[in-house]
Write a protein that binds this DNA or RNA. Structure first.
Length: 359
DNA sequence: CACACGTGGCA
DNA sequence: TTGCCAAGTGT
């Protein structure tokens, strides 16, 4: 005699669904470690679980607690974050660790106090407070915003302050009415991530379907209204690829421009229309060459609204010790400086072309 | 409030 | 291939 799910409260149905369907993720091991919860939440901001999965364990192994993190340099932390994107998050996590070290030495336990830490906004504060410290406070991330917008068939814009408050009025009783608040929050996020998807929601598998007004009205995917996006900007860069006999690459720290600042990449410059990529690359590096500059297959890289086409030029320097060549030489297999995934893409095209050329 | 920031996968 | 994202925060 299975009870009718419709008779259970929303929160109870969510918890039951979570018990049977939530993914096992490294940061969900019990008991919850507040530090691991914090790191995972920061890593997950504006990114997807799969992206974080391969990086999380290595990061917390290198920095198992806030004290270890505070003792590291910012550059070391950035290097461990390399490839995850939104590098400001890593800088702020590092600042956070040092701020905690300068204060009580322990993470605060309330959402209000957590929200004062660098990099911790309303979402992360509520997530850590509820998941790690059992505070009954709702989270409102992109997943929960979508789930709530659909259940309520919310007609307004849920991204405005008034819209968010309307959704929170519905969410608050859910996390307060009983059961672990963190798990109710996690269930809503998990539901949004795996069932109540942006397009083609799987309503047949949704524990909230009986109460979902958007589903009753048909076309639940109409909620929430799409966000307006900025037009893409096309940009072309030249990258000077210099590799020494040991396979190390010449890299420099990006100090100009709005993008990738502070990270280390092969020398890069914008390519003006009509300019010669080979000449730009040679000017960037400045050393004498053993062989003519060799253009490689171009690489595409997108950052926010910029679509960047990178033209790599392989430069065979006659001497990597030339005084005119500035920068550092790093082993791509274990970069000791923070790099962008653009670096990995450049390495890949270089390897491909080397094999093709039979070098 | 608008806009900025990285990334890789998918339709 | 191109466009559209996905567990936000700071300015």
């Amino acid at each position: 005699m299975l009870g009718d799910d419709g008779d259970m409260t929303l929160a109870k149905r969510l918890l039951a669904w979570h018990r049977g369907n939530a993914r096992q993720l490294p940061w969900r091991s019990e008991p919850r470690d507040p530090y691991r919860v914090l790191v995972s939440e920061l890593m997950l901001q504006q990114t997807q679980v799969d992206r974080v999965l391969d990086r999380f364990e290595a990061f917390v192994a290198a920095y198992p607690d806030l004290a270890t993190l505070a003792a590291a340099t910012e550059e070391e932390v950035l290097a461990a974050w390399s490839g995850l994107g939104y590098y400001r998050r890593a800088r702020m996590l590092h600042h956070l660790a040092r701020e905690v070290r300068a204060g009580t030495g322990a993470l605060p336990t309330s959402a209000a106090e957590l929200a004062e830490l660098p990099g911790v906004g309303p979402y992360t504060a509520a997530a850590v407070a509820s998941l790690a410290f059992a505070e009954a406070i709702p989270v409102l991330d992109g997943n929960v915003l979508r789930v709530a917008s659909r259940v309520l068939a919310f007609a307004g814009d849920p991204r405005t302050a008034a819209g968010r408050e309307a959704l929170l009025r519905w969410l608050r009783p859910l996390v307060e009415e009983g059961g672990p608040p963190g798990l109710v929050n996690e269930a809503l996020m998990e539901l949004g991530a795996t069932v109540c998807r942006p397009t083609s929601p799987h309503c047949a598998r949704c524990p909230l379907a009986p109460d979902c007004r958007a589903r009753a009205l048909g076309r639940p995917e109409r909620y929430p209204p799409p966000r307006r996006r900025r037009a893409e900007l096309a940009v072309t860069w030249v990258a000077a690829c210099c590799v020494d006999a040991a396979g190390r690459w010449l890299v420099r720290q990006v100090t100009e421009g709005p993008i990738l600042r502070g990270l280390w990449l092969p020398p890069i410059a914008a390519l003006e229309p009509g300019a010669s990529p080979e000449e730009v690359a040679c000017d960037l590096v400045g050393g004498r060459l053993r062989a003519p500059p060799q253009p490689l297959a171009s690489v595409r890289h997108s950052i926010t609204h910029r679509r960047i086409t990178v033209q790599p030029i392989r430069l065979a320097l006659s001497s990597t010790r030339s005084a005119s060549v500035t920068g550092r030489w790093v082993d791509p297999a274990s970069p000791t400086v923070p790099t962008s995934s653009l670096f990995s893409k450049l390495i890949k095209v270089n390897n491909l072309s080397s094999q093709d050329a039979g070098e």
